[in-house]
Design a protein around this nucleic acid. Structure first.
Lengths: 73, 73
DNA sequence: CAAAGGGTTATGATATATAATAACTATTAT
DNA sequence: ATAATAGTTATTATATATCATAACCCTTTG
């Protein structure tokens, strides 16, 4: 994994976290809705995971945003 | 995989294919640049693959678009 | 005709995302 | 002080994305 790829995943993760907080939701709230364990969401929000499209879709639905917002830099 | 998830992947794939063609690139052109085999890109463009963020990033760079464009429905 | 270019389908091996659990830190409330 | 809430880190098992090859369809060109 290159440095720019790491940056990219970090950006995606922090976008998710930012949007989630803006909606007043905790990681646990989101996890409950999409049946994900909180360590896994944490790992995604911290950019340690090369998250798949469908996982992004689930998260986006749970926090009521469009997936594309995760890629607005 | 639910029906709406299938639809979502189909949409992402056809967005990729559409943007690629608009740039006048063949699957092989893109594959050469990102060192991917053409059956795999075909599979992504046809929505048969739950493509990861980094793969989307590579494809986006190769066709010179933003990843978010893959998620404009 | 055959060859080439663009794309698809099937399949197997390997790398890794996801699912899950436990243990930890930090902050806030009782 | 301790319980609860929110988030992180580490780790393992399982599911699956990626990588890779071969064989195929179509259309176009020599």
């Amino acid at each position: 994994m290159t440095a720019s790829e790491k940056k990219f995943l970090k950006s995606v993760g922090s976008n998710i976290a930012k949007l989630r907080r803006e909606k007043g939701l905790s990681q646990l709230d989101v996890c409950a809705e999409i049946k994900m364990e909180k360590p896994n969401l944490s790992s995604i929000e911290n950019g340690r995971q090369n998250v798949t499209s469908l996982t992004l879709l689930k998260i986006a639905k749970a926090i009521n945003v469009d997936v594309k917002e995760f890629f607005e830099f």
